[in-house]
Each structure stands twice: as C-alpha cells, then as structure tokens.
Amino acid sequence: MPDGHSHNHGQCCGNEATDVDHAFEMGIEYSLYKKIDMDNLECLNEECEGSGKKVFKAYENRQNHTEFVTSDADEEMLFNIPFTGNIKLKGIIIVGADDNTHPSKVRLFKNRQKMTFDDARGKPDQEFDLSRDPRGDIEYSPKVVTFSSVHHLSLHFPSNYGDDVARIYYIGLRGEFNEAHYHGVTICTYEARPNVSDHKTETYDAVNRTIQ
C-alpha cells in the first residue's frame, strides 16, 4: 500500500497547485475594479453613504464579508459605474449572503450615465437571474458584442429573495481595458509648441487663439 499512498499524496499536491494557479489567474482577470472612477461611482438606495464603493475589491477578497452594502428603503439598488477608459466586459460575479437578502436579479445598462430608478424601468441591454452565491463561485457572462466598448456601466438590482433589504458583499467585473485617448489635446499641444519664438506672426496668433 505504500505505492498507493505515495500516488495519492502527489495527486493532492497537484490539485492544490492547480487551485492556486486558477485563483491567481482569476485575480488578474477580475481586476477591472482598479479601472473604476471611484470618485464618481454612485450607489442609489444604499443604507450607509459610500458603502457601495466597498464591494468593488480584489477577487481574493470576495469572501470577506466585513465590508458590504445594504439597501435602505427597500430591496432595490442601482450602481452607476464610470470607468477611466473603455472596457470589454466578459464576466460578472455577485456575492451575497446565503439568505433572503441576496439579490435575485441584475439588469445591465451600458453607457447611460447618471441613471435613476425611473430610467432603470426601461429595457436593459442584458439581465440575469441570480442564484445565491456566498462564495463567489458563479460567473455570469454578458454578451461580448454588446459590452465590447463600455465607458459607463449601470447595474440595477430590482429584487431579492424576499427580505425587506438586499445586501451585497462583492461585485466582480472581468474583461479587458483600454486607456482613454484625448487626441485633440495632444494635437493642440504639439502644434502650438514649435515656432512660438521664431515665427510669432499675426497669422500664427490667429491660429493659436482658434486652437485654444
């Protein structure tokens, strides 16, 4: 039986290594939270002001239930999430408690800034029925074609499993990120620099005033 014991031990180690590698890869892929413009992120109907921002955190902290957002007047919540560039959204994870406070549905809207609950009554770009997921094991896959160029994402949670309030511990966003480029500013800076001292003419002054 020694050979059998040795084989099982090796297999166990291999599984542990695979789990670690998978967690590391998922941590890299679920890093879009770093690209959120947190100063302008909004969570409507949050019980404690600013608590909605705390659920956007590292993948490895998704099971940390010390930080969360709870709804206030009822179970409905709406997140307006601006990014510092454009993203291609490929996956979403929603972690709640294993009870009736867990949201039961999420509705996605792209590139509609400052949405209100009235706005969220309209047709979403996509929606998912949510299962209770206290560990963050379930990933929902948005349509890549629809969410391939997103600078603002709204997540509407209209309902939960029956409690008076909803609670969320983690919202994970997986995908690709592209920096925002402001070509107009770059061109103006480049064009205005060359001949200021050597060719300060009336024509240049007129062009320069137009650019500014």
Score class of each variant (00 low, 15 high):
Lys114Leu: 12
Ala180Ser: 13
Glu202Cys: 13
Glu202Pro: 09
Thr146Lys: 10
Glu176Asp: 09
Val144Trp: 07
Val150Trp: 02
Gly136Asp: 04
Val185Trp: 07
Asn178Gly: 06
Glu191Cys: 14
Tyr170Pro: 04
Ser131Tyr: 07
Ser141Trp: 06
His151Asn: 15
Thr101Asp: 00
His181Val: 15
Arg107Lys: 15
His183Asp: 09
Thr201Ile: 08
Asp137Arg: 13
Val150Met: 03
Tyr161His: 07
Tyr169Phe: 12
Leu89Gly: 01
Ser148Leu: 07
Asp125Thr: 04
Gly136Pro: 07
Thr201Tyr: 04
Ile92Cys: 00
Lys143Asp: 15
Val196Ile: 09
Lys143His: 11
Pro124Ala: 08
Val144Pro: 00
Ile187Trp: 10
Asp98Thr: 02
Glu179Gln: 13
Ile87Val: 10
Gly162His: 11
Phe157Ile: 10
Gly172Cys: 00
Ala120Val: 10
Gln113Pro: 08
Asp129Lys: 09
Arg135Val: 10
Arg135Thr: 14
Gly122Pro: 05
Arg174Gln: 10
Asn195Asp: 12
Leu89Ser: 02
Gly136Arg: 05
Lys88Arg: 13
Phe117Asn: 07
Glu179Phe: 14
Asp129Gly: 11
Lys114Ala: 12
Arg132His: 07
Val144Arg: 10
Ala120Cys: 11
Ala180Val: 05
His151Tyr: 11
Lys143Ile: 13
Leu108Val: 07
His181Leu: 14
Ser159Trp: 04
Pro134His: 05
Arg167Leu: 06
Thr189Ser: 14
Pro124His: 02
Glu179Val: 15
Ser141Phe: 14
Ser104Met: 06
Gly162Leu: 10
Phe147Ala: 07
Asp118Leu: 13
Glu202Gln: 12
Phe147Cys: 00
Met115Phe: 06
Cys188Ser: 07
Phe177Ala: 04
Ile93Trp: 02
Glu202Ser: 15
Glu202Phe: 07
Lys123Trp: 07
Phe117Cys: 13
Tyr182Glu: 07
Ser148His: 06
Arg121Phe: 08
Gly175Gln: 00
Asp129His: 05
Arg167Asp: 02
Lys90Ile: 05
Ala166Arg: 03
Asp99Ala: 05
Tyr140His: 03
Ile87Trp: 01
Ile94Lys: 00
Ala97Trp: 01
Asn195Gln: 14
Phe177Met: 09
Gly184Asn: 12
Thr146Ser: 12
Tyr161Ala: 01
Ala206Ile: 15
Tyr190Gly: 11
Ala206Gln: 14
Met115Asn: 03
Arg135Ser: 15
Ser131Pro: 00
